[in-house]
Structure formats: C-alpha cells, structure tokens
C-alpha cells in the first residue's frame, strides 16, 4: 500500500524495541526484566509486522505478517508466565526494592509438603 506508512510503523517498532532492550540491561531483577520483555519488545515487533502489512497490502506476505501478531502475543505471554514461575520456584531472589511478597507462604508450604 503505502511505503511511508510502513516506514513510520517500523520506526515506532524499533523505538519500542530499543526501550525494551534498555530495560533488559538496566532493571534490577529477573521479574522486572520480564516486564520489559513481554511489553516493550512484543509490542515493538508487532508494530514492525504491521509495517510489513502496510508495505505489501493484503497479499500472501501481508496476511502472513498479520497472522504472526496473535502468535507472537500468545507465545510471549505464556513464555513470560512460565519463566517467572520457574524462576520463583528455582529460588531466584526478588530485588531489594521489593515492597511486598504474598506468594512466599504458598511456595514454602508446598515445598515442605513435598508436592509441586
């Protein structure tokens, strides 16, 4: 369709990707880094794929890019949830700034009981 619109969408996507990777470097612990991964980088890549759709219009490449978006959403959310849960059960400490932890009791009782 329109090259200009495509370039604009891809640029917005790259800006969000830069912010997400900056968060990956700067934030203090695993859980906060996952926040930047699931939000900034996923939305940035979705924006890039929308840019591809703008370039090609509704032909085979554009539709494929459009259907990549829900795929990316579901895989990134489920992956982030699994990683956060795995890290907590593995025993990765929360950052020093953490205010409140209501999940501790459940994990402690489950580990003492011997069931996961």
């Amino acid at each position: 369709m329109s090259d200009l619109l495509g370039v604009i969408f891809i640029s917005i996507g790259i800006i969000f990707n830069i912010l997400g990777c900056l968060g990956l470097i700067r934030l203090p612990d695993v859980y906060n880094r996952l926040q930047s991964s699931t939000k900034c980088v996923t939305l940035g890549t979705c924006s890039i794929l929308l840019g591809v759709l703008m370039f090609f219009g509704f032909n085979s490449i554009g539709v494929k890019a459009l259907f990549c978006i829900p795929l990316l959403f579901f895989t990134s959310t489920v992956g982030a949830h699994a990683l956060a849960r795995g890290a907590y059960w593995f025993g990765v400490k929360l950052a020093d700034k953490t205010k409140i932890d209501e999940y501790k009791d459940l994990v402690k009782s489950a580990k003492e009981g011997g069931t996961a």
Binding site: C21, L24, V30, R33, V41, S76, F90
Partner: peptide, 22 residues
Amino acid sequence: SIADRMVGLDIFGILVVGICAV
C-alpha cells in the same frame, strides 16, 4: 543467574522475528 540468561534468550527470539520481517 540462569533465569536472567533465559530471559535474554526469550527476547532474542522475538528480535529475530523483527529482523526477518525487515
């Protein structure tokens, strides 16, 4: 920790999709 490395790997996978799109 090993979890940090896996978060990096996860984001790496998403970035590769962006490269493929461009």
